[in-house]
Design a protein around this nucleic acid. Structure first.
Length: 888
DNA sequence: GTGGTCACG
DNA sequence: ACGTACGTGACCACC
């Protein structure tokens, strides 16, 4: 027996499930030539390699459950009752999973009447006795009871990559008990997912308290008489049998009649021939090429020396002879394409690949005409980026029909990488490297000194765009997203590009004046604070501030963060009366936020044309909204007067022009009225009633709208928002400062008034569970893998997301349609007005005074007719000399 | 790079 | 019983 011997025990069933759901999003990508799903096997293999590398075991065993009935179901019929059936897409992979393990040279084992846990428990015990170090990998926390000095349990946290390591110390730290005592805890608290009861009203917290006090269930019942009278004591007495039974069910057996010998478990690596055959059967091309064996894929990889031609003024004319759609790429290493240096470009469609680092060629009439030719179809990666970059050279690229980045985002919003190489790999295409690999990252990021490496990368990138096009278009079609892609996101990219290029004018003089005013205000407030505190400190440091408040001044602690005491607004609000320092701190925070983010921050972003040119991120959010960066123009202050003044610095490009703005009124609630089909809510909107007052009447049980006070309306409004966010009584109670009970009553009354809204929330969660995703009006899709999680928090979050995303996402769809139509109308009507900004439910323009009356009619009519819903859309407009002066 | 805080819809 | 609203980005301190 070698001292280095290390046994790896894998909970096969648990990890198969993890692997399956980790790539559940990509279920459609992973099928072989026979239509067999392969995602679980693929993910399992990836994870296994990770684990092998980390653990470096000498022996391995994968344990599986043998069937539905075990000695536990014999004891308790309902054990694991009510569990959802294994999805058929996973069940069909099980036999192949075993084939894979055989080919990988890994022993697997199952035992009639026992679960995988018991096999693992038994083998772990035997192996330890034989002097092994044991590592157990599972997704099931219950196995942590097997933790000892020589046995470590690794529990998968999220997906399959991240592992939480349980040692006896870690169990002690987390739960405050011994690993062996976990079954005592489980016996008292029961287990809903395994469906055994425990003791009524006892959950983890109480169970832990009791176990710490008594040590075990047996000891607890020995001493039950001395426990003082309580409801809990009654429950304990009533459920004594259940407690002992549950403990028994939770206990993993370490004496199962397993027939494998540890010596059989030696791991010496895969059987290459068998593995190659298996990968071929599964169509695992990337694994095949990684094996570097004599296979088709490997041969293809070896011959992947791409021949390209360097484009110069001498052969530029060749471009004119190109036939058919061409992929086109313009390379910039920096993020911000408004200012980034253009570093090169590439063109091709398989017959030939052209690359160049001479970006002056782009302005040559030959290339410029080619790019602007309406009859030359092009495919790109990131249309908006490409358009803006070329526009800087006076080129407006035309007839782009495919954008790899946009297509990939629509197919799965979770994969929000901006790197062509990474995205290609996600779609199973490995013949291109990521930019990080070729260019490096951070300060070291640069074009490789070896020009052939650079050119090869450009050529491979442009080739990836071309070669992935058909596959992704087909997948979009399968998702019913062709329209969304072709007629919404692609045209929108150009609309956004033009908004970014237009930019909005910022009055720097105005900002500088504010900077001086805020500076002296801050100095005065800081002085007052230091006086009260009796010392100077860094007010911007939450850490230093909390020391002053909670240690020096001994104010009561309301809330803690991961790292210390919280000093957030809601905490300070509660401390207001405790010390005059609080009001000063709140004021200081407010002003210093405005100063640093909006005055100083904005000043840094102004270009020589006196404008800021934001970038809208079109492929980032999980819901389909846009986001705005460098600078973010979607969070300019408005709620508080001091901050709102920042808007005075946003002015039209000409002195006699105006800023004009229109926004949707309650668009999300209208979308909810539409998709839920709730007649009461629809009627309220059709009759143009005040929806918040309408809700207030119900939750406060009023007869007439005249009885609604402003405060009632405020609370009703919060309830309406709560519904959109996927409500909880606690969340609502925190938000409007009422008790949880009252909040619950509000919600119940709400659902009574809008019964179909309640039905819809239930249906959408159910549908998300079945399909694994939710959709918006325009078939924008968001996958929710956590909807199946055993972790309450992750699952609850996914459920709220299932409710919120169709609402927020459909609202995003609607304004996007309006923007496309709006851009067309402005052009058609030959107006000078320019669309500048989008702030989720609001569009902002600048225009000559003379056009204001036109816009006042045109913009609302375009916005409210963007889609036809079962309720009308309402739009409010206003205009003024600056953004601040826009009043509606 | 991460966490706390706070600006917006 | 669990720990809580949905979606973002920028700044500062601190490691």
């Amino acid at each position: 027996m070698n001292k280095q011997d290390k046994l790896l025990l894998i909970d096969g069933n648990s990890l198969m499930f993890r692997a399956f759901f980790a790539l559940h999003n990509a279920l459609d990508h992973f099928t072989n030539h026979d239509g067999l799903h392969t995602n679980a096997i693929y993910a399992f293999k990836t994870m296994l390699d990770d684990v092998l590398k980390q653990v470096e075991p000498t022996h391995i065993l994968v344990a599986f459950d043998a069937g539905k009935t075990t000695f536990r179901t014999a004891k308790f019929e309902d054990y694991k009752g009510g569990r959802a059936k294994m999805p058929s897409e996973l069940a069909e992979q099980l036999p192949y999973m075993r084939q894979f393990l055989d080919a990988y040279g890994i022993k697997w084992y199952e035992l009639k009447d026992f679960e995988a846990d018991d096999i693992i428990g038994t083998v772990a015990k035997d192996a330890e006795a034989a002097g092994f170090k044991v590592t157990i990998i599972t997704g099931d926390r219950d196995l942590t009871q097997l933790t000892t000095a020589n046995t470590t349990v690794e529990v998968t946290v999220k997906g399959v990559k991240q592992l939480e390591t349980y040692t006896p110390e870690h169990v002690q730290e987390k739960l405050g008990i011994d690993p062996k005592q976990i079954v005592e805890m489980k016996g008292l608290m029961g287990d809903t997912s395994d469906n055994y009861p425990g003791v009524t009203k006892i959950g983890e917290v109480t169970a832990l308290k009791l176990v710490k006090k008594y040590g075990s269930i047996a000891a607890l019942y020995d001493n039950i008489d001395s426990m003082k009278k309580s409801k809990m004591k009654e429950n304990l007495i009533n459920d004594q049998a259940a407690a002992f039974m549950s403990r028994d069910l939770a206990q993993i057996r370490q004496d199962a009649p397993v027939t494998v010998q540890i010596n059989d478990l030696v791991y010496t690596g895969p059987n290459l021939d068998a593995l190659i055959d298996f990968y071929k059967e599964m169509d695992f091309k990337s694994f095949l090429s990684a094996l570097d064996a004599d296979t088709d894929a490997a041969t293809a990889a070896e011959s992947d020396v791409l021949t390209y031609e360097t484009l110069t003024s001498a052969n530029l004319k060749d471009i004119e002879a190109l036939q058919g759609p061409q992929a086109f790429l313009v390379e910039m290493l920096a993020d911000n394409y408004h200012s980034a240096t253009l570093d090169g470009f590439a063109i091709g469609n398989g017959n030939k690949w052209y690359v160049s680092n001479d970006v002056n060629l782009l302005s040559d009439p030959i290339l410029k005409n080619w790019l602007m030719a309406k009859d030359q179809e092009k495919y790109v990666f990131d249309l908006k980026r490409t358009y803006v970059a070329l526009n800087r050279l006076g080129i407006q690229i035309q007839n782009v029909t495919f954008d790899l980045l946009l297509a990939s985002y629509l197919l799965d919003t979770n994969e929000n990488s901006n790197d062509l190489g990474e995205i290609a790999q996600l779609h199973g295409y490995t013949a291109v490297q990521t930019d990080e690999v070729v260019y490096g990252k951070g300060a070291k990021r640069a074009i490789p000194s070896d020009q052939s490496i650079y050119y090869d990368h450009l050529a491979k990138k442009v080739r990836a765009i071309f070669e992935l096009r058909d596959k992704l278009m087909a997948e979009l079609d399968k998702h019913e997203q062709t329209d969304l892609f072709k007629h919404l996101e692609m045209p929108l990219a150009l609309v956004l590009a033009n908004m970014e290029i237009a930019g909005i004018t910022v009055d720097a003089t105005r900002l500088v004046k504010m900077q001086g005013e805020f500076k002296s205000q801050l100095e005065i407030i800081a002085g007052d604070i230091y006086d009260i505190a009796g010392t100077k400190f860094n007010l911007n440091s939450p850490k230093q501030l909390s020391e002053i408040l909670f240690e020096k001044l001994q104010l009561p602690v309301i809330k803690k963060t991961k790292t210390g005491y919280s000093t957030a607004v809601d905490v300070l609000e509660k401390l207001r009366t405790a010390s005059p320092i609080i009001d000063n701190i709140l004021k200081y925070r407010q002003i210093s936020k405005i100063q640093s983010t909006y005055v100083n921050g904005l000043l840094k972003q102004i270009y020589p044309d006196h404008k800021v040119h934001t970038r809208y991120l079109q492929t980032l959010t999980q819901t389909g909204r846009l986001s705005s960066v460098d600078p973010n123009l979607q969070n300019i202050p408005v709620r508080i007067e001091e901050g709102r003044k920042i808007r005075q610095a946003f002015v039209p490009r000409h002195p006699d022009w105006e800023i004009f703005s229109s926004d949707y009124s309650q668009v999300e609630l209208r979308v909810l009225a539409h998709i839920s089909g709730d007649e009461n809510m629809r009627e309220a909107f059709r009759e143009n009633r005040d929806i918040h007052a309408n809700t207030a009447m119900k939750i406060f049980n009023l007869k007439d709208a005249s009885e609604v006070t402003p405060d009632m309306r405020r609370q009703a409004k919060a309830t309406n928002f709560g519904i959109v966010y996927g409500i909880s009584d606690y969340g609502l109670s925190q938000n409007i400062g009422i008790t949880r009970k009252e909040a619950k009553r509000f919600i119940d009354a709400y659902f009574e008034q809008y019964p179909k809204v309640k039905l819809w929330t239930e249906d959408i969660v159910k549908s998300a569970r079945e399909k694994g995703y939710v959709e918006t009006l325009m078939h924008r899709r968001r996958y929710l893998p956590d909807i199946h999680s055993k972790n309450f928090n992750l699952r609850s979050f996914a459920e709220r997301t299932a409710m919120n995303t169709p609402i927020q996402g459909s609202a995003a769809d609607i304004i996007k349609v309006a923007m496309i139509n709006m851009a067309a109308k402005l052009k058609e009507a030959n107006l000078q007005a320019v669309m500048l900004l989008q702030v989720h439910d609001e569009l902002i323009f600048e225009a000559p005074q003379s056009e204001i009356p036109v816009l006042e009619k045109l913009v609302p009519s375009v916005m409210d007719s963007a889609v036809k819903l079962a309720v009308p859309l309402k739009v409010d407009s206003g205009y003024g000399k600056t953004w601040y002066d826009v009043k509606k």
